[in-house]
């Protein structure tokens, strides 16, 4: 099935893979924001995850170990953020920006000497005859395990937030931390855990870039993916399935513009490559224009400093 020289099935299969880093980072940030903390350090956590995963995978020869290391590194960055904002009560926006800058610098330092190396490959899972079904096969049964894990995480996040007691407590903390504290819930502990989870997801997303998508290490290779993930959380009005939708739309536009370039459409390359970002901005503007609705989705305590004496 082709349209204007572009194979739709291949397009869908590749957009899923292209979207996975952003999807992972965004779903993690969603949990952190639902607990009431705005962590702008997603980009920094992603790139540190990318280099840590790359280094460990290259030395151990195991991409699985690499992904574990990436998650741990992202979580460590997030715990640092939690210590600064939850214990020392620093400003969340400034600390998040600093975390991104710190992550970019640290990853560049760690990545010295890893340029041009090839990491061990992460093969697609073999589904046997299922992968040979036309259309469905290439779209659903021809991916690597991390992509399936990312979909499981979205499902798990949805179940956790809407059906579990722990998820209810997390939402309560993000909604009104003073009331949650008055009822005896540990606001800081819950937020630290949510941040660590968000960091681990961002780390995984970064490693997916350096181990599967590219697969290579290059300085600053996340190239704004963390910021897009933050925008997608807002686009999704803090709902897990909409994060999936938002990430796949963004990934879809990214892949589509590449294919359009390859197909030789007469639109300047510069305009095509800015398309994903322009569309993100456009969607955000449309979302925030419907103010009442969007405001309902936002956790009421998002970004506010909690101190137990209040």
């Amino acid at each position: 099935m082709t349209l204007g020289g572009i194979d739709i099935v291949v397009l869908i299969a590749s957009l899923m893979s292209a979207s996975t880093p952003i999807l992972l980072a965004a779903i993690g940030e969603l949990v952190a924001e639902r607990s009431g903390v705005l962590n702008l350090g997603v980009e920094g956590m992603m790139i540190v995850g990318a280099i840590c995963g790359f280094v460990v995978a290259v030395h151990s020869g195991s991409p699985v170990l690499g992904f574990f290391a990436a998650a741990a590194a992202g979580a460590a960055m997030a715990v640092l953020f939690a210590f600064l904002t939850q214990v020392l009560l620093s400003n969340q926006v400034a600390t998040g920006l600093a975390l991104t800058l710190f992550g970019l610098g640290l990853s560049a330092l760690m990545g010295q000497g890893y340029n041009g190396l090839k990491p061990p490959s992460t093969p697609d899972i073999r589904f046997g005859p299922l992968a040979d079904i036309p259309v469905i096969g290439p779209i659903l049964f021809s991916h690597d395990w991390v992509l399936y894990l990312s979909l499981l995480i979205v499902l798990g996040t949805w179940v956790f937030l809407t059906h579990s007691r722990a998820g209810l407590v997390l939402r309560a903390v993000g909604e009104n931390h003073d009331a949650a504290h008055a009822l005896g819930y540990r606001v800081r502990l819950i937020r630290t855990a949510a941040l660590a989870w968000g960091g681990a997801c961002a780390g995984l997303g970064g490693a997916y870039l350096s181990l599967v998508r590219v697969p290579q290490w290059a300085e600053g290779m996340t190239a704004g993916a963390g910021w897009i993930a933050l925008a997608i959380v807002v686009f999704a009005s803090w709902r897990p399935w909409r994060v999936l939708l938002g990430a796949y739309i963004f990934g879809g536009v990214t892949v589509l513009q590449l294919r359009l370039q390859a197909a030789g459409i007469a639109i300047p390359v510069q305009i095509l490559s800015t398309a994903p970002y322009l569309i993100t901005i456009l969607v955000l503007v449309v979302m925030s224009a419907r103010r009442g609705r969007a405001a309902l989705g936002a956790p009421a305590a998002l970004g506010r400093v909690f101190h137990a004496s209040n």
Binding site: L168, V169, R171, A172, E175, N176, D178, A179, L183, A300
Partner: peptide, 20 residues
């Protein structure tokens, strides 16, 4: 019962009760 309600506006009645 608190003076300034310890309630969560974006949650429903049953969820608010369960939290306490």
């Amino acid at each position: 019962v608190f003076q300034h309600f310890s309630l969560f506006e974006a949650l429903n009645v049953a969820e608010n009760v369960a939290l306490g």
